[in-house]
Design a protein around this nucleic acid. Structure first.
Lengths: 158, 158
DNA sequence: TTGCTTGCAAATGATTTGCACTGCT
DNA sequence: AGCAGTGCAAATCATTTGCAAGCAA
């Protein structure tokens, strides 16, 4: 596989940036764990500094390699951009902040796309990308049987 | 109209809170302007203090009267909860942060709901509420003819 | 060498909170 | 009296940024 790395390398290069080991480490963490917060990224990538990680995310977002995932909680969550991983949506746990990637039926996507285009036009709004996410409780945070275990944390300051 | 205010008053009362003029002012601003940031709320509601406004939003959110709207930018945007205004979605301008409320076709909503329920089940996820939003450029921020005017501001720190 | 990288420490700025006081009930 | 509301000022904490040193082209 001419893997995603080549693609990323090219995107960075086009912007006059280098695909350094630091950035690569960050990307690999995102590829491995999916939507993550900065603390999570730092924990998964020993050697990365907080400031550098933030800086990298900013650059990578600008270049279109990573994108923010809207979630509750104090930390911004980021993931590899749709363009690299394929279009998908999210199941967001409002209790622990966890995010699960999911894909929807093509026909449905098309229907949503069409409907949004219609309302957008009505407001002279130029649409670029749609988000669809389901908020609720993940397996670990849901009440009842299954996992009454400990949520992965990440709540608001209380 | 037994207006939304009664409903809100009841919700607050159930939580042992009072529907004070300060809270009412905040609600009225949201009802009037739709999704707003705290600075916008303060500007529209003379007499409200920043700390009180933040506190009110926290309580009102907990009681289910207001909800956060996921948007880019530094300030959290809030609006009256779906339960009070009717289910709707958003057109989010990534340039100025403006948010426009829109409603989608009932059939489409149902289809999305069904599809999400299916994937949620697959992940033992308990869904509660779905969000659908279209990101792009609002009339004022879109390039080209129409309004090459000044965006309503509100960007990231740059 | 010229410019992109980065670590460290200091700065920013949105949001939260402690405390004291006012006002319902 | 007893508890909720609220302003003010101080505290927090995620995120950003200045600066100086390291490295690749």
């Amino acid at each position: 596989m001419t893997s995603v790395h080549d693609e990323i390398g090219r995107l960075l290069d086009d912007a006059g940036l280098r695909y350094t080991p630091g950035r690569r480490a960050l990307i690999e963490v995102l590829a491995r764990r999916g939507p993550s917060t900065l603390p999570e990224i730092l924990a998964a990538a020993p050697g990365l500094t907080q400031s550098s990680a933030y800086r990298h995310l900013g650059e990578l977002e600008a270049v279109g390699v990573v994108q923010r995932v809207p979630t509750p909680g104090d930390h911004t969550r980021v993931e590899l951009a749709d363009g690299l991983t394929g279009h998908h949506h999210h199941l967001v746990c409002d209790a622990c902040g966890a995010v699960i990637d999911v894909e929807l039926d093509t026909d449905l996507e098309a229907a949503v796309e069409t409907a949004l285009a219609r309302v957008a036009a009505r407001h002279a709004f130029v649409g670029e990308r749609h988000d669809i996410d389901l908020h609720g409780r993940c397996r670990s945070c849901a009440p009842g049987p299954s996992g009454a275990a400990s949520p992965t944390a990440t709540r608001r300051r209380s």
